[in-house]
Simulated assay, not measured.
Amino acid sequence: MILYDNGIIKLDYNPATDILEVAYPDLVGYMLPEIKNSIDTLVDFLISYDVKRMLLDSSRTTIAVSQEESREITVYLVAGLTKTRMQKLARLQSESVAVENTASNNVSHIKQQGLLPFPLENFNNKAEAVEWLIG
Rank of each mutant, 00 (worst) to 15 (best):
P119R: 00
L56D: 06
L81P: 00
E95A: 13
S96E: 08
F118H: 09
A64W: 13
L81C: 03
D26R: 10
G29K: 11
A98P: 00
K36V: 08
E131L: 06
N37D: 13
Y30P: 10
I19R: 03
S70D: 04
D44Y: 07
K111C: 05
V99W: 09
S96V: 03
Q67S: 13
I110D: 09
G114L: 08
K111S: 02
T84E: 04
T82K: 06
R91S: 13
V43Y: 01
S38G: 13
V107Q: 11
L92V: 05
L55W: 03
T102N: 15
I47M: 04
H109K: 12
A127W: 11
S58T: 13
E21W: 02
A90P: 00
T62M: 08
A98S: 04
N14W: 02
V51H: 00
L56C: 11
Y76Q: 05
K88H: 07
E72M: 15
V130E: 10
T82A: 06
A127H: 09
L20N: 05
V78H: 01
N122V: 02
P25D: 02
V107E: 12
A64Q: 11
M86N: 03
E72I: 10
F118R: 01
G114F: 08
L20R: 03
L133N: 04
L11P: 03
L27V: 06
F45Y: 11
A64E: 15
P25I: 10
L89V: 08
T74G: 06
F45N: 09
D18Q: 08
I63P: 14
T84A: 15
Q67G: 07
A103M: 11
E121G: 03
K126G: 09
E95G: 11
T82R: 05
L120S: 11
L27E: 07
S70Q: 08
L89G: 14
N6V: 00
M54K: 09
L92G: 13
N122R: 01
E95Q: 13
E34S: 14
L133C: 13
P119H: 05
L77V: 08
A103N: 12
E72Y: 15
S66H: 03
F45D: 12
L20A: 07
S70W: 01
Q87E: 14
Q112S: 15
E100C: 05
N106H: 13
E68C: 00
R71V: 10
V51T: 04
V130Y: 03
L120I: 14
V65I: 14
Y30L: 06
L3M: 08
S48K: 12
A23L: 09
L133V: 00
F45E: 14
S94I: 12
L11S: 04
V78N: 01
T17V: 07
A64C: 11
N122L: 07
S48G: 12
N122D: 07
E128H: 02
L55R: 05
T102I: 14
T74I: 04
A98H: 01
V107T: 12
H109S: 06
Q93S: 12
F118Y: 10
P15R: 02
L120P: 02
E34P: 13
M1V: 15
S108F: 11
L120E: 07
M1T: 15
T41L: 12
V43P: 00
